[in-house]
Amino acid sequence: MPTTTHYLDHRVDPRLTIAASWTSMLFLFVCVDLFSLYRKDVRADLEAGKVAAFTIGQGYLLGVILYVAVPSLMLLLSLVMPARVTRAANIAVAAIYAVTIAASAVGEWTYFVVGSVIEVTLLVAIAYQAWTWPTVTDSLPTPRGGQWRHTGQNQLDLEVAEHETTTGR
């Protein structure tokens, strides 16, 4: 008789999931932009000193480096900031970047749109992971099969299953 192998699976810390998602998004971010350099129209615009509606200059390049620096720093900050701040920052930054990336993909070639859709999907995953961040009550042990519930500000009560209360266990 064949035996079934059961694998031990642990919940991954949301900080690691979010940091990994920022890393994946940044890889795609860079690849999509680099692949654009293979296009004649993009190279011609660059030679003319333009990118889309922008003139390439110090102001534009400073804006670009700041735009790329934010998600790069979110990778680190997601690992080191307090949970409450990390949660809020990831929701806000992911939402802003999802909108800007989606807007930049309008009218672009298919590779750019596909890359942007994947980037936006990763950003939605970041925001979702931050939104559903586990609370202390999700990880507290519950004796006798009970469940924790909030009873007021910073108050926790243990609800014990009905049958355990009546049986005296």
Results as ranks from 00 to 15, higher is better:
58 Q>F: 09
169 R>I: 12
28 L>F: 10
147 Q>K: 14
138 D>W: 13
21 S>D: 00
164 E>T: 02
125 A>E: 08
98 A>H: 06
96 I>G: 03
88 A>S: 09
67 Y>F: 13
167 T>M: 05
121 T>H: 04
100 T>Q: 06
85 V>E: 02
71 P>W: 02
101 I>S: 05
120 V>C: 03
114 V>P: 09
101 I>K: 06
86 T>D: 01
26 L>F: 15
96 I>C: 06
20 A>W: 12
153 Q>G: 01
43 R>A: 09
101 I>W: 07
6 H>N: 04
78 S>G: 12
160 V>W: 11
79 L>S: 01
20 A>Y: 08
68 V>C: 10
114 V>Y: 12
145 G>A: 13
135 T>L: 06
88 A>C: 01
90 N>G: 02
143 P>W: 12
24 S>A: 15
18 I>G: 00
9 D>N: 09
119 E>W: 06
73 L>T: 07
161 A>D: 04
81 M>F: 11
145 G>Q: 14
87 R>S: 11
75 L>C: 10
103 A>N: 08
130 A>L: 14
64 V>C: 05
51 V>W: 13
122 L>Q: 05
89 A>L: 14
46 L>P: 08
45 D>T: 08
55 T>Y: 02
66 L>N: 06
37 L>I: 07
76 L>M: 08
72 S>T: 15
165 T>V: 15
54 F>M: 13
84 R>L: 10
92 A>C: 13
50 K>C: 04
53 A>K: 12
135 T>H: 06
25 M>C: 11
30 V>K: 00
25 M>S: 05
31 C>G: 10
85 V>L: 13
112 F>M: 09
143 P>S: 03
60 Y>L: 11
75 L>K: 05
18 I>C: 03
135 T>A: 08
93 V>R: 05
81 M>G: 00
110 T>H: 01
7 Y>G: 01
32 V>D: 01
145 G>S: 12
59 G>H: 10
157 D>F: 11
76 L>I: 12
157 D>I: 12
38 Y>Q: 10
124 V>P: 04
69 A>G: 06
79 L>F: 03
165 T>R: 14
67 Y>T: 05
129 Q>K: 07
65 I>G: 00
26 L>P: 08
40 K>Y: 10
147 Q>R: 15
121 T>K: 05
124 V>Y: 04
141 P>A: 13
46 L>H: 08
64 V>S: 10
59 G>F: 09
108 E>I: 09
155 Q>V: 11
128 Y>P: 00
90 N>Q: 04
165 T>M: 12
20 A>Q: 03
150 H>K: 03
17 T>D: 03
44 A>K: 04
12 V>Q: 07
104 S>R: 01
85 V>W: 12
155 Q>S: 07
167 T>G: 00
14 P>K: 15
31 C>E: 11
32 V>M: 01
111 Y>P: 13
23 T>Y: 00
18 I>V: 15
147 Q>F: 07
32 V>N: 01
81 M>Y: 06
149 R>D: 04
